[in-house]
Amino acid sequence: MDPQLLFNGIAVGSVLALAAIGLTLTYGILRLSNFAHGDFMTLGAYLTWLFNTGISIRMGYRVIDIDGVNIWLAMFLGAGGTVIAMLIAEFLLWKPMRDRRATSTTLIIISIGLALFIRSGILLIWGGSNQSYDLPLVQALDIGGVRIAYYRLIVIGLAILAMIALHFLLQKSKIGKAMRAVADNIDLARISGINVERVVIWTWIITGILTAVAGGMYGLITTVRPNMGWFLILPLFASVILGGIGNPYGAIAGALIIGVAQESSVQFLNSEYKLGVALLIMAIVLFVRPQGLFKGTA
């Protein structure tokens, strides 16, 4: 396999992995297949871009310019904003509907409405043109003929860091254990004294951070545009299903497989059809092993 394509695939796969972890957590713990997940990614990227490039607010005659901050701080602030947006959705939509014991189909339709709302809201506020971060230019490295773009390398490193942190959170911390318990069996978790509502809030916080960082990083290796996340919804669901719904480690493996497969497909396929690769993998998984490669919870 062409090492260049492999490298690109791992970079894209890392972005997908971070977002897919969030999707699989909400899928497994809240029983919610969130079709707005990709658009939350877009929101994270736009907030990062906003904090990075600065804002100028017009108040009457006066124009207040707020300077942008460095990209890493911007990504951090963007993650905070995305978490707030996800918690608003939780309290206005998901919690009331869960309390009413709405069916999963009802939730799916609400999530697609939310996806339309967020995406066109972004279009309304920031317009449809491509945006890019305010970044210093860095020369790409060249290792044995493979062009290693600096930011792609950063993306991979950051994703590994986030995954290790998540691993320790899920395995060692109290809240992580509670999350796994709720995903496994919500009623059993509740009667063992786990505060399910608190677990739900923490799930959204973790999901929001990972999703926003994934969006911000996707903006680093491509451009920031209103439908960047929407076009990732299929690869994301494919990764989640490939890795077994509710299994974060499975989602990481699935995302890397999908990312590498998509990027290496450009050797023999029009690059416009990357989406078709994810669709094909998903169709094969559904035929051969619908429960996914690893053990899921839902």
């Binding site: 339709i109 609400i110 409405g113 339309l116 066109s120 809201g121 279009l123 309304l124």
Partner: peptide, 21 residues
């Protein structure tokens, strides 16, 4: 004018959510 299209779609998303709720 360029904002009208997104606004109309936003309202459609909102209607879909409100109806289902």
């Amino acid at each position: 004018p360029t904002q009208l299209g997104p606004l109309r779609i936003m309202v459609i998303g909102l209607i879909l959510m409100l109806l289902m709720v």
